[in-house]
């Protein structure tokens, strides 16, 4: 894979660091009892969600899911709005209607919100791609699914329809080894999730989901192909969910050896090593970025916690569009 421009590699790092910082802060908030409901852990997914989001053009549409905090950030959703959503405030993306990252759609940012029924958002993103074909617009839609949701019927229905329609559509499977507590081998009788594409006549790629540059290059190529009329691509990005399914989950069912193996390949630290070894940044720069991210996230927490709760008098507002 050709090396990415230096500025882009440095940018990718910034967004991964911001994602990690916000995720760490969420874990802290919940452990301190300051959270509302639950929050979904991001650790391990930063490279995939950031790189895929960055590989899209501004007019492209993306439908992230619950471990794609990085993608929301990259696409311009502010930490303040996201944090307020996590805390159920009126200033959150969904004005308290939906929790954590659920429902964090904003069409002005070309972001489609997801629902818990994974991957029901996949055909919705496909429909966005089909609308681009309908209107002959050079735009692409991308969505994420998990290893777990790649087992669901709607995953296969959507991939099939995408192929028939030759839609400008990219699907990234975030294979993080577990669907909640269920390991891969209890979910499916294959090791290589990318093979799911071939039965539908869809091209596929497999990437190291902890290598942000590899993910970026692969997604960028798939997006370019889709934009040129080459149809859909399925990308399996392999990673590891480093914490529980959600904040309540200690994930004791995950063998420590597996975590240790992946911890040594932490996507953020891997990329930092790459940048420093190339001489693009130094330790002082990395410390400055980390500090900046901490400030941004602290501001988001301050904003969210001081935001108003939604007015119960508005509970019936907005069920229908005017």
């Amino acid at each position: 894979m050709t090396r990415l421009p230096d500025d882009l590699s440095i940018d990718l790092h910034y967004w991964m660091r911001l994602t990690r910082t916000m995720d760490d802060q969420l874990v802290t908030l919940w452990k301190q009892g300051r959270g509302v409901g639950t929050t979904f852990n991001q650790r391990g997914h930063e490279a995939i969600s950031v790189a895929a989001g960055m590989a899209l053009a501004p007019d492209d549409v993306v439908a992230p899911m619950h471990r794609d905090l990085g993608c929301y950030l990259v696409r311009g959703m502010t930490p303040r709005r996201l944090m307020a959503n996590q805390l159920g405030r009126a200033t959150g993306v969904t004005r308290g209607r939906d929790g954590n990252l659920h429902g964090c759609g904003d069409l002005s940012l070309n972001l489609i919100g997801f629902i818990s029924h994974l991957p029901q958002t996949m055909p919705v993103a496909l429909g966005a791609a089909m609308s681009f074909s309908y209107r002959s617009e050079p735009r692409v839609a991308l969505t994420f699914v998990g290893d777990g949701s790649s087992c669901a019927g709607v995953f296969h229905e959507s991939l099939n329809l995408a192929a028939v329609q030759r839609a400008p559509f990219v699907v990234v499977i975030e294979n993080n080894q577990y669907a909640y507590s269920t390991p891969l081998h209890q979910q499916m009788a294959i090791d290589d999730l990318a093979v799911r594409a071939s039965g539908h006549g869809v091209e596929s790629r497999t990437v190291d989901g902890n290598d942000v540059e590899e993910v970026y290059g692969t997604v960028e190529a798939a997006v370019a192909k889709a934009r040129e009329g080459g149809g859909p691509t399925l990308i399996e990005a392999r990673t590891m969910r480093m914490l529980g399914h959600a904040i309540h989950d200690g994930a004791e069912y995950v063998p420590q050896a597996l975590l240790d193996e992946w911890e040594a390949r932490d996507p953020l630290l891997l990329h930092e090593e790459k940048l420093t070894s190339r001489g693009l940044v130094d330790r002082e720069y990395l410390a400055r970025v980390a500090e900046k991210c901490r400030e941004i996230v602290a501001d988001a927490v301050e904003f969210a916690e001081s935001s108003e709760w939604p007015d119960p008098g508005t509970v019936t507002d907005g069920v229908y569009a005017a």
Binding site: Q120, M130, E157
Partner: peptide, 18 residues
Amino acid sequence: TPMTELAFIGAATGMGLM
């Protein structure tokens, strides 16, 4: 459409959003 109601109704939702 193929015989895939979840996919094509979901796709209609995406088209509607656009």
